[in-house]
Simulated scan of single mutants.
Amino acid sequence: MSSIVRRAAGAFRGEVVEVLDVRKTPRAEWTFPSSPRAVPAARSAVVGRLEAWGLDGVRDTAALLVTELITNSVRHGPGGPIDLRIFAPDAEGGPEVEGGPGTVRIEVRDEDPLPPRPREEVRPEDESGRGLLLLTSLARAWGVHPGLRGKTVWFELAVPG
């Protein structure tokens, strides 16, 4: 059985708050500090959740796009926390997905109110500037929602099969 153990902040050593069967939990949320260390941590969290859900067909693309969005938040954001949410296909209580049934949705929220802007020109020798091009090319749909604190950039991936 694939499960995750949640512990309360400030709990006594070993105190378990709940054990979730991740195969039956259709969403997950994490908050990361605005730090370069957030990038591999977020990527690992998404890959682990997709594997637990048996969604290996979108794992690599999701990992790449999460890496791009978290990196953008760390580089261009004002330094506040970065929230990451993932919704399994057909998750009840989740956002309405543009792509319909069979779609994984991933959201990254940061405190920068400005939407991401694609670079006008990216040269082959440039080390950055391709994130939104990848998002446009690989995601079924993507967009930006302004919020009370910053913005949320979301994307959706079609689950093969």
Rank of each mutant, 00 (worst) to 15 (best):
93 G>N: 14
22 V>N: 01
74 V>L: 12
142 W>L: 08
86 I>M: 05
132 L>I: 14
48 G>C: 05
2 S>E: 13
123 R>Q: 15
160 P>L: 07
25 T>C: 07
112 D>P: 10
113 P>W: 09
43 R>Y: 01
60 D>A: 11
117 R>V: 15
76 H>F: 15
110 D>H: 11
138 L>D: 05
24 K>M: 10
54 G>T: 03
155 F>C: 01
141 A>C: 05
28 A>I: 09
148 L>H: 05
19 V>W: 11
17 V>Y: 13
76 H>Y: 15
118 P>E: 09
146 P>E: 09
43 R>D: 06
116 P>L: 10
103 T>G: 04
134 L>G: 03
119 R>T: 11
84 L>N: 01
111 E>G: 03
100 G>A: 11
130 R>G: 01
78 P>Y: 03
48 G>A: 05
126 D>R: 00
107 E>Y: 11
71 T>S: 07
133 L>E: 14
18 E>M: 10
30 W>T: 03
124 P>C: 08
14 G>I: 01
134 L>I: 07
101 P>S: 15
150 G>H: 03
28 A>G: 12
60 D>T: 11
52 A>G: 11
43 R>T: 10
4 I>C: 12
147 G>Y: 00
5 V>Q: 13
156 E>S: 02
150 G>W: 00
71 T>W: 06
119 R>E: 15
95 P>T: 12
7 R>A: 13
8 A>R: 15
98 E>I: 10
110 D>W: 11
149 R>W: 00
9 A>P: 14
137 S>I: 02
102 G>R: 12
69 L>M: 14
56 D>G: 07
160 P>T: 01
62 A>T: 10
41 A>V: 02
70 I>W: 00
105 R>N: 05
106 I>C: 00
72 N>E: 13
